Simulated scan of single mutants.
Amino acid sequence: MSDPKWLKSSYSEASANNCVEVAVGGQHLVALRDSTRPFRVIPVSSSTFHALVQGVKVGVFASTQG
């Protein structure tokens, strides 16, 4: 990814700097990063990213701590 276009969720505040950002880097590559640490980029396959999103949607990663 030479010059990725980073996107953040529409649920994030426009001026917030504590978001997960996503960039698509080709047909089968997605990059993830924390906006507070933009130099740490995690490349994943598009199928892995899709599985992550589906898991979030169904609550697989929901906290059980109150």
Score class of each variant (00 low, 15 high):
6 W>C: 08
15 S>P: 11
18 N>R: 13
56 V>P: 05
38 P>V: 14
25 G>W: 04
34 D>G: 06
39 F>C: 12
28 H>P: 11
34 D>F: 03
63 S>I: 07
7 L>V: 08
50 H>F: 05
37 R>L: 00
28 H>D: 15
12 S>R: 00
54 Q>F: 02
53 V>P: 07
34 D>E: 06
1 M>E: 10
4 P>K: 08
17 N>V: 10
41 V>P: 05
50 H>P: 08
22 V>W: 03
48 T>A: 15
44 V>C: 06
18 N>H: 15
9 S>V: 13
11 Y>L: 11
59 G>C: 08
50 H>N: 08
45 S>C: 03
66 G>C: 07
65 Q>M: 08
58 V>H: 11
4 P>E: 04
39 F>V: 15
57 K>G: 12
40 R>G: 04
18 N>Q: 14
39 F>R: 15
65 Q>P: 02
45 S>V: 05
17 N>I: 08
47 S>C: 00
39 F>M: 14
64 T>Y: 00
3 D>K: 07
22 V>L: 10
49 F>K: 05
11 Y>S: 10
54 Q>S: 12
33 R>G: 09
32 L>D: 03
58 V>P: 06
21 E>D: 05
25 G>R: 08
24 V>L: 14
5 K>M: 15
64 T>L: 06
55 G>L: 04
40 R>D: 12
42 I>H: 10
2 S>Q: 14
47 S>T: 02
2 S>P: 15
9 S>L: 10
47 S>I: 06
40 R>S: 10
46 S>W: 00
50 H>R: 13
42 I>L: 11
63 S>L: 13
38 P>I: 10
48 T>M: 08
30 V>H: 00
35 S>C: 01
47 S>H: 07
55 G>N: 06
14 A>P: 09
26 G>Y: 04
43 P>S: 04
10 S>N: 08
38 P>M: 05
11 Y>Q: 12
17 N>C: 09
23 A>G: 13
7 L>Q: 13
48 T>E: 14
31 A>Q: 05
45 S>A: 10
36 T>R: 14
27 Q>M: 02
54 Q>T: 10
48 T>Q: 13
31 A>K: 00
26 G>W: 03
39 F>S: 15
66 G>E: 12
30 V>I: 13
21 E>F: 00
33 R>K: 06
33 R>T: 11
14 A>S: 09
19 C>M: 01
23 A>V: 03
34 D>Y: 02
5 K>N: 15
6 W>Q: 03
27 Q>C: 00
15 S>K: 11
62 A>S: 13
17 N>W: 06
65 Q>F: 07
66 G>W: 03
16 A>G: 10
23 A>I: 01
50 H>Q: 10
8 K>Y: 00
55 G>T: 06
54 Q>I: 12
